[in-house]
Write a protein that binds this DNA or RNA. Structure first.
Lengths: 209, 209
DNA sequence: CAAAAATGAATGAGTATTCATTCAGATTAT
DNA sequence: ATAATCTGAATGAATACTCATTCATTTTTG
C-alpha cells in the first residue's frame, strides 16, 4: 500500500527523484546521443519541469557524473551477484562472468549506448576515466585471480593468467561494440561460442566443448 | 619545390584545406571531447578564421561525417597495406593484421579517442552507424576467410571460423578500450601475448609459441 | 501555517551560420 | 613587362538560436 502510494504523490523522495532523472538521462543519451541531450530533454523525458535537474543535481556535469556512477554500480551489482550465485569453483565462476556479459540485462542496446557515450569522452574527462578505471581494475583483478586458480588446479603450462584475463575482458567489450554497431548481424550464439571456444582452447580440462 | 610552396601560400587547394580542417577536428575531439568541440575551436586549432568550416563543409554535421569517413579510410589503407605486405600465407596475413592493431600508428590515444567519440554516438546517428558497419563487415569478412583457409590447411576440428574471427576482432577493439582508459597500466607486450596465446591455442600448428 | 518540492518564465553565456568585405594570386590588356 | 581586372579563398563581425542556470511564484506535504 505504501509502495503504491508513492505513485500518487506529486513530490517524491530525494533519492527516487534523482534515480528517475538518471533513468531519463540514460534514455536520452541512448536516443539522441550524449552531445545533443539537453537538460530540457531530460526533464521532458522524466515528465517534470525545466529547472528540475538543477534542483536535484546542481549542474549538468554533476548529473552526468552520477549517471556514469549509477551505470557502473549497476554492473558491479550484477557482477558480484553472478560470482556469489555460482558456487566456489573457479571455472564455474569464470563461466558465469562471461555469460553475464552476454545476458540481455547487460547486452542491451540502450545500456551499451550509454557506456559507449561515456567511453567516448573518457580521454577528455578525467572524472569519467577515474570511474571507469576503478571498475576495470576490479574486474581484471577478479578475473585474473580466477585464471590463476584454474591454471594451478589444471597444471596448465605456458599460460599467463594476466594475458588470459586481458583477452577475456577485451573480448566482451569488443563484442558489445559489434552488437551496438550491427545489432541485426550480431548473433548471441556465435558470440557465446567464440568465448566458449576460447576458454576450451586455453583450459581444455575445465571447459569441455 | 612546388610541394614546399604550398606552405607559403595563404590560400590552399580545396582538398588540402579540407584535410587540414579534418585534422584539426580530430585534435579537438581528442582534447576536448566530441560534445564540447565547437567550430570556433576547430578554426582556432587550424589557425584559420571563424567561418572557415562552413565555407568548406557547409555544416558541422558534414564536417563530422567527413572526419569519420577520413579516419575509417585511413584505417582501411593501413589494413590493406598490411595484407599486401605479408605474402600469400593465410597465417602470416592473420598475424600481420593482429599486430597492426597494436602498432603505434593505430594504438594511438588520439586516434582511439576519435574512434570512441564516434562509436559513442553510433546509436543515435544512423550515418555514423552506416560507415562503421560497412568497415566492420569488410574486416570480419577478410579475417573470417583467412580463418577458413587456416582451418582447411591444418585440418583443425571443432573450430568455427566465424567464432574465431568474432573473437579476434572483438579482442582488438576491447584492447583499444583498455588502452584508452588506462594507458599506464596497459602493456603492449601483454596485449600481444594475449593475442598470440589465443592464436596458438586455436591453431597450434600455424602459430607456435 | 511553515517548510519542502516543483514549476516555468526569464536570463545570459555561448555557438552555428551568414555575409559584406578584404586580399592574394591568376588572367588579361596595354 | 606592367598595370588593370578578375576570381574565389579567407576573414570576422553580426545574426539567430540553443541551452544551462536562476529564481520568483505556486503547489504539496506534514
Amino acid at each position: 500500500m505504501s509502495a503504491t502510494a508513492k505513485k500518487t504523490k506529486r513530490t517524491a523522495s530525494r533519492a527516487s527523484r534523482r534515480q528517475q532523472l538518471i533513468d531519463a538521462t540514460m534514455k536520452c543519451i541512448a536516443r539522441k546521443g550524449m552531445s545533443s541531450t539537453t537538460l530540457g530533454d531530460v526533464a521532458r523525458e522524466a515528465g517534470l519541469s525545466q529547472g528540475i535537474v538543477n534542483l536535484h543535481f546542481e549542474s549538468k556535469e554533476n548529473l552526468l557524473n552520477e549517471t556514469l556512477r549509477n551505470i557502473a554500480d549497476d554492473y558491479k551489482t550484477q557482477f558480484n551477484r553472478a560470482l556469489d550465485k555460482s558456487g566456489p569453483d573457479a571455472a564455474n565462476k569464470l563461466h558465469a562472468l562471461m555469460e553475464l556479459d552476454l545476458r540481455p540485462s547487460i547486452l542491451d542496446r540502450q545500456k551499451l549506448a550509454v557506456w559507449f557515450a561515456f567511453w567516448g569522452e573518457v580521454k577528455s574527462r578525467p572524472r569519467y576515466r577515474e570511474i571507469c578505471k576503478k571498475s576495470d581494475e576490479y574486474y581484471d583483478e577478479v578475473v585474473c585471480t580466477l585464471c590463476e586458480e584454474i591454471i594451478a588446479a589444471g597444471h596448465y603450462k605456458d599460460v599467463s593468467p594476466l594475458a588470459v584475463a586481458t583477452a577475456l575482458t577485451s573480448m566482451t567489450n569488443g563484442l558489445w561494440l559489434s552488437y551496438l554497431i550491427s545489432p541485426k548481424r550480431f548473433d548471441r550464439q556465435i558470440a557465446s561460442n567464440a568465448v566458449a571456444e576460447y576458454l576450451h582452447s586455453i583450459f581444455p580440462k575445465h571447459f569441455p566443448l
